[in-house]
């Protein structure tokens, strides 16, 4: 019937207005107003006792002054910009630099003074990633033969200057290592989830299990 469609449409919008299950999954990044119930949940208390014990905080939250952080739930595979780089694993082969479509990774190596006879012949002097030009395709991670470079999990790297966006070797060394599981199935199989805050040591991120001491000794014995 002519004209009925208009009212059907009105019904759809009203349904979306009232039914909570049809609401957008809204994340009020970076923070949102906290009700006393939210605050009680953060404090792991039941709401009644929270309101009784923290009257000032309750009042502030009712006035809208209390906020709690709110972030989008991400998957562990998320390709973020805080690269995780393990200097113990990196040989300075520069595969990542060659594979980068934009050529934003700069690696300078020099001969190392120590242990030259045992094969550790190179020191990495410079390892710069210009994340201001990075498009987070992850090809550098794919190219790394020693699992030294990993995508990160964060995305809050806003800076005031372009030059600040270049991550240098000291920052990479000292940064908290929260590698993404992107192209690193071994991390997934270990239950690693950077979004939940788990960090990974250089020994854990490799593609292969490190042989145990007994293993090694057995093999040596067989030889």
């Amino acid at each position: 019937m002519y004209g009925l469609g208009l009212f059907k449409g009105l019904g759809v919008t009203m349904k979306n207005l009232v039914s909570p299950s049809r609401q957008f999954n809204i994340v009020q990044y970076p923070n949102r107003r906290a009700s006393p119930f939210d605050l009680a949940k953060v404090d792991n208390q039941n709401p009644v006792s929270f309101i009784a014990t923290h009257p000032l905080k309750t009042l502030r939250s009712l006035l809208g002054l209390e906020t709690i952080t709110d972030r989008m739930p991400q998957h562990a595979n998320f390709r973020g910009e805080e690269f995780a780089w393990y200097d113990r694993r990196c040989t300075g082969c520069a595969s990542c630099a060659k594979y980068c479509p934009l050529g934003i990774i700069k690696i300078v190596t020099g001969t190392s003074g120590v242990n030259q006879q045992e094969g550790q012949s190179y020191d990495i002097d410079v390892f710069d990633i210009d994340i201001g030009r990075c498009m987070f395709c992850g090809l550098c991670v794919e190219a790394c033969p020693y699992d030294a470079l990993h995508m990160g999990s964060g995305f809050e790297e806003g800076k005031y200057r372009r030059s600040d966006l270049v991550i240098n070797i000291d920052q990479l060394k000292s940064a908290e290592k929260k590698p993404s599981t992107w192209f690193r199935p071994q991390l997934t199989s270990r239950g690693h989830d950077p979004i939940k805050g788990s960090t990974a040591d250089w020994e854990e991120v490799g593609r292969h299990e490190k042989p145990s001491l007994e293993d090694q000794s057995e093999r040596w014995a067989k030889r």
């Binding site: 002519y2 469609g5 208009l6 059907k8 449409g9 019904g11 759809v12 919008t13």
Partner: peptide, 8 residues
């Protein structure tokens, strides 16, 4: 139902 049958 929001769009297809809407007379406008």
């Amino acid at each position: 139902s929001l769009i297809t049958t809407n007379e406008i």
